[in-house]
Design a protein around this nucleic acid. Sequence first.
DNA 1: GCTTACGTTGCTATC
DNA 2: AGATAGCAACGTAAG
Length: 831
Amino acid sequence: MSLPPPQPPQSRSLSQLLLQHPPSQAAAAAAVPQESRNACHWFRINALRLDDNPALLAAIEYSSSSSSSSSAPSASAPTTTSASASHSGTAEPHNTLHNVFVLDPSDATIPSSGLPLVFLLESLTNLQSRLTWLGSHLTILRGQVEQVLPDYLSKHDISLVTYEESTPEPASSQVAQRLEQALHPLRIRQRLETSAFVTHTLYDMNMLLVACKNTPPLTYGKFLSLIESIGPPVAPLDAPHRLAERGPAGQTDAATGGIPSLAELGISEPHTPLMFHGGETAGQARMHHYLGDLARVANFSKPELDPTLFEEPSSSVMSPYLRFGCVSPRRFFFEINKVYIDSGVTPTQPPVSLLGQLYWREFFYLVAAGTPNFDRAAGNPICKQIQWDVNPEYLAAWESGRTGYPWIDAAMNQLREVGWMHHLARHAVACFLTRGDLFLSWELGRDYLQRTLLDADWSISNANWMWMSASAFFHAYFRVYSPITFAQHYDPEGKFVRRFVPALRNFPSEYIYMPWSAPLEVQREAGCIVGVDYPKPIVDHEQVCRTNMERMRDAYAQQPDAAALMAVSAVSMLTRQPHDAVTLAQMHGQSSGTLSIKSSDSISAPFFKPLDTSANGVADTSRLGDTTSVHSGSTDSIPRAHQKTASEEAARVTNDARRWSTTPVPVLSRDLGQILQQWHADMLQRAQAASQLVHHNHSDEAHRHASEAHHHALEPDSSTSLSSGSVTPPSQVGSAGTISNREVHFDPALHSMMATEVVGQLHPAVGLVADHLNAAISTRVTRRSSEAFGDSHAAAAAAAAASQPGSAKRSRASTPPSVETSTRCTSPRKR
DNA sequence: GCTTACGTTGCTATC
DNA sequence: AGATAGCAACGTAAG
């Protein structure tokens, strides 16, 4: 795959920058001369740096309009007649620059404990000293953003706020939305403007979503093609030069304070020295150090890196610095390109190259931005619906490094100790937790890593967990990592295990990855008795791996359509006939365009195994039988999967009961209700995001319309739009046990209505939901009905789905969420 | 609707 | 040792 030719980094002038970001330019021009031009840059968790920070530069530029000597590099001073313009030479500028970070306990994107918190505090400390050197100051506010920040802005008479745009993580955009909402009074009272910039990714995800018509590619190659058609990312901007002493340096008022200590936050100091230190300075040092080895960078090939190296990791470990924005991905990108040129050799190519890793990050951000319910299986249209087991003891063993498989345990211990694991070690533990061995949900593993890893990144985390569990992106579930041979290949001596599983320090290499197989005298000699000093394996890999593969095969074969489910659900909400939503895919009558969906082969499957799969039933029974027999006295030293504790068995039985329930309907309906509610919440969020987008565009009319859309989203008219109240409670959902005989009539015209009326009322950005609907109906449901009822029905279904509902809606879905469309589409419709 | 090419990184046995 | 075939056969996306 040939890539866009690298652009040399070039610094652009601020006026150029502002041209690219008309909002802030508009803000600057709109300010009334007599008013002060105090600006505030709100540092967010994804951009804790001075380098390549256009939002910071914009704030500097805005607040230093009078003095070209104190403004940012190469900035041409805007023509202005402001009062401060009369200040000359060394005089203190009248305007102040404020830099604020808000420690908001309600902000889920801010780590609240552990090594990630330590890393954050270090990053803030570094940021503070860098700002001080610059001649400015970092103020830490504590409390909810939407309360403390407006107060601060009001008190300091600030008229421009700049910040880094939110990530695809819902919690991230929610914070920004809460703030924007709270700032509304200030917009009027002190003519406050806000401006957001995207530098935490190489590309603006909204732009990419438009480019891919709201349907992100699901393969890396397709993603590369997409960005190839767009061109290389924008070059990074240099950090601001030193400013004259400005801003409220040294000031501490009641609401502000310094950077809190760990103790102050009630967190104990880590007992081992940090391996990776937070901050822009540390990040840049690491980047330059790593990039100093030209040959290593040019020959970088991700899958070949050794996951067992721990003194000096084989990969760059730039990920924590990218997560917190200590280093700009654009800067990293252009620095890598420089090395490629300097190295004089042909560098490796994506997907395995170092640059390719940045593209992976971008790819996952894009899919995350364009996929509803990206962080869970339910209601996630790209995620396979797999009936994972429930077993808290297995989960606890995995988390705490007590699975009995030294390679897995060592990796988990490394994670706990240093907050980082090699990429391939993550693969190993993720595969082990999910499809490989324990068959637990990827969401559980994601949760643990998300709060433990220094580089935890919502978009990348969820994508990789779906990948490794073969829930999305990757589907060759029969390729399972062995917890024994995989690490053996890299580290036959077991140095990594000895370092991170102290109990095995003296174990002979021959048995280091399978200590249970060592003769007892060997164990005694090594000072580690398996079962006493180190746990026995909690599962027999050989055995569970085979069983799990069968379960994966079954799950794939009976894969329901999450997308179709969502589509039908949505229509049922509109028709207020949710009791009918749960069923089957059959097509009758092309002329009437009415669909019905058969539950037995599609809808019930996401949450339940079909009742009639006798083969599986037998297998299940036999497994339970095995369990019983084992309890009657095997002293076999070889671990067996069915050697279970009573509580494990209880969990298993509960699990089976859930899977084999003979009355699935009520439970199914409850799940469905949750999906609908979640979906509705997502719509609200998108509407708010859209409204915010319009704020940034400073179009009064657009703004008014967006507000109306927002209002509608928040207080939906129950007769016209989606409200959680329209979800039928489980008790109202049909009679149990007759699910396979029930049908729902599904009119494509209603689908169209939903797109134009309800979705359109919120915002065209919500059109992406309609897009999912569209895809769901035209492909998934059709395919289902084809399987169930033959080709003629399928053809009719396809025709119906693609005819009148398609045309109107498709054009909307492919329309960028621009101001123009928003003014058109968000105007409320009377019924 | 069908076929085909492709997909960041498996394991084991065999030569 | 390093490469190859067999395993059992997935989904995505394009033609």
